[in-house]
Simulated scan of single mutants.
Amino acid sequence: MKKIVPIIATISIVSLLSVPVVLAQPSIGRGNSRGSPYHRMYDPKTVETITGQVIGIENSPSPRGMSGGIHLKVKSQNEVVSVHLGPAWYINNQTIPIKLQDQIEVKGSRINFAGQPAIIAAEVKKDNQILKLRDENGVPVWAGWRRQQR
C-alpha cells in the first residue's frame, strides 16, 4: 500500500501537467477556426471576381453542432456557382442584406468543394455597399468577433 500511494501521486501530477499542452493544440478540423482544413482552402493565387444574380440562399449545417454556414447560388454569365460567405451567426448580424434576385459582385478564392466549383468569398458588393468577409490572405474577419461584441 505504501508503494501505491507515491505511484498514484506521480501519475496524477504527470496527468495534470499534460492538460495545458492538450488545450493549447490548434483546433484542426473545426469548421470555424482559422486553422481548419476548410479555411486553409482559401488560396490568394486563385482569387477572382464574378458578377451575377443570387438564385439561391442556403444555410448549410455544420458538423459537431457549430453554427451553419451561409452559401449563395450565384448565376453569372458563364455558370452557376456556390459562394461560401461565412457562419450564419456572423452573416445574420451584418447590415447588408442579401436576398434572392439581388445583383452582386463577389471577390474570392475559387475552390473545388465536394466535387463542385465554389468560391470562398472575401467580399461581396451589392449596389454601393461592400460586405467584407476575409482579408487578402483569407483570414475571416469574424475571427474573434464574438469576443469583441461583449
Rank of each mutant, 00 (worst) to 15 (best):
E136G: 00
L16G: 15
Q94C: 02
E48S: 15
I50D: 04
K132P: 05
G65Y: 06
H39D: 00
P20A: 06
G68K: 05
S67C: 12
E79I: 03
P63Y: 12
K75M: 11
Q101F: 13
L85C: 05
P20K: 04
V21C: 04
G68S: 08
Q94D: 01
V22D: 07
I4D: 06
V83D: 02
P61I: 11
Q103R: 09
L72E: 01
L133E: 00
I11L: 15
K75F: 00
V83F: 05
G115W: 10
P140Q: 01
N59T: 13
Q94R: 13
S18D: 10
Q103C: 00
L133N: 00
Q129A: 07
K45G: 08
W89A: 06
Y38E: 06
P37T: 03
G31M: 11
I57M: 10
I98V: 11
M41V: 05
V124E: 00
K2D: 11
P87G: 02
P44A: 15
P37C: 05
E48A: 12
P97F: 04
I55L: 08
I70K: 01
T10F: 14
D102A: 05
I7P: 07
N78F: 10
M66Y: 10
K75R: 10
I4S: 14
P6D: 04
P44V: 03
R134L: 06
N137I: 03
I8N: 04
V14T: 04
P26V: 03
E48K: 04
G56A: 07
G69T: 07
K73P: 05
P97A: 08
T51N: 09
K132L: 05
P87W: 08
V124N: 01
R40A: 14
I4R: 12
N92D: 13
P87A: 04
L23G: 11
A9I: 09
V21D: 05
K107I: 09
P117I: 06
M1R: 06
V54G: 03
I96Q: 01
N78H: 12
Q116A: 12
P63K: 08
K125H: 12
V139W: 12
V21M: 06
D127T: 09
P37D: 14
N32F: 03
L131F: 07
N59S: 07
G108K: 01
V139A: 13
S15H: 04
N59W: 05
V22P: 01
K107P: 04
I119G: 02
T10R: 11
N112Y: 08
N32L: 13
S36R: 03
I57N: 08
Q129G: 02
K132V: 15
R147T: 11
R40H: 13
I130L: 04
I11Y: 08
I120H: 02
S62M: 07
V14W: 10
D43T: 09
A143L: 13
I8F: 15
R34Y: 14
T46R: 08
I130C: 01
P20H: 04
R30K: 14
S12D: 09
E123T: 07
P140S: 08
I98D: 08
